[in-house]
Design a protein around this nucleic acid. Sequence first.
DNA 1: TAAAACACGTGAGGC
DNA 2: TGCCTCACGTGTTTT
Lengths: 238, 238
Amino acid sequence: MENIDDEYRNYWETNTFLQTEELDCYFDESMSVSYEYESSSPEGMQSSSSPPSKNIVSERNRRKKLNEKLYALRSVVPNITKMDKASTIRDAIEYIKSLHSEEKKIKAEISELERGIMTSSPNSANSEVITSCCKRKRTKMVRCHDPIEVIELRVSNMGEKTIVVSLECNNKRDTIIKLCKAFESLNLKIITSSINAFSGRLFKTVFLQDDEDDENDLRVKIEDAIAALNNPDSPMSY
Amino acid sequence: MENIDDEYRNYWETNTFLQTEELDCYFDESMSVSYEYESSSPEGMQSSSSPPSKNIVSERNRRKKLNEKLYALRSVVPNITKMDKASTIRDAIEYIKSLHSEEKKIKAEISELERGIMTSSPNSANSEVITSCCKRKRTKMVRCHDPIEVIELRVSNMGEKTIVVSLECNNKRDTIIKLCKAFESLNLKIITSSINAFSGRLFKTVFLQDDEDDENDLRVKIEDAIAALNNPDSPMSY
DNA sequence: TAAAACACGTGAGGC
DNA sequence: TGCCTCACGTGTTTT
């Protein structure tokens, strides 16, 4: 008959005790012990009077843990607008989203940097301005996407493991640099090389020693390297 | 065996006696009836049974909102281990931390890339290996910090606004690229240019048209551009 | 079956 | 005042 009475009395006891005295931290150890006994009391008891004590303390711990987690979340998220629980989570979400977009930007930027080269011509067609990154002083950078337009590529074996590469292409902005990067990426044993610019064209001649590849293999390698540089999506993972 | 219960009951009595006299009205009818017992308040009205419904529904909404926020948090955090509330927050924290360290890494990487140039030689001295970035397939990249070692730089006016630049330097890894970058950054009106590599040296010759600068001005410009490339701290913000 | 996670209604307190 | 956030104890569900 006193079931509900007892329950709610118990509710009230602990509740007001905790809320008014704010003894939360002391409760965990010292009090929980005193709560312990009586839980193994005879079965005939009003089932509600004793068992909750176990649950109460564990529930308390659960809430405590969860709040600590929330505090930790606050600590790793900058720009927390309010100390609100919901606001904390909302800010965390927005922060993660902003980090995601940053990540995207940076990825693009890195692949740009990996593949390509900066130039100082803001008016160059087929280029874009990207402001980067991560809240440091934003440096304006202009990237040029003009591909290497190969007009002629000759790879000829001169005997004695010596191969001569002769390449002619249009001389757009940064073409020289890309060309150099393409050849650098192949790790060739270069004996001597020259690049000449004339009449809107680039002429590159390379003498190199190659013990492994024949003409065709090397030709394919060079073509692949150039293609990789021309492909904007390539991470240029060399 | 009701010792503790009794103690707390006493506590409750005195406590609530002192601080709350008006709380009765919040219990809905069924409760307040059995609860009515010794309310010290003479006004022990059970006037309510309708007002709590307002609070209940708003509290329900609050919980609902908060849970939705948690779901949203789950949706922006990959690698959620458990659907637990606490686990969600914990995973979010760890995820943010990992993003922070990623960001740090990437910042370093970008400043490397901005200043320097990549090479494919893992054995090159004065270089470092950096593994990048963002959980995509980690590409090993090696950066070369070898500066341009200028042996001789001649800038001579040939009349008719035509200037000839002749530069000789050691041919280290990426020196060609850096050299090209340095000259590209100057936005010169190049008539024809050539680069030749021989005997560990690089020989670059440039014919250009310059309506503004004289020999010395252009020479200083070239030296500055090369110095900027050699300076690791320069953001190369051209 | 016991423990853990959760949703609920509720009073306290801040604004 | 009224609204909102929070912590609490409790019963139910999940593991």
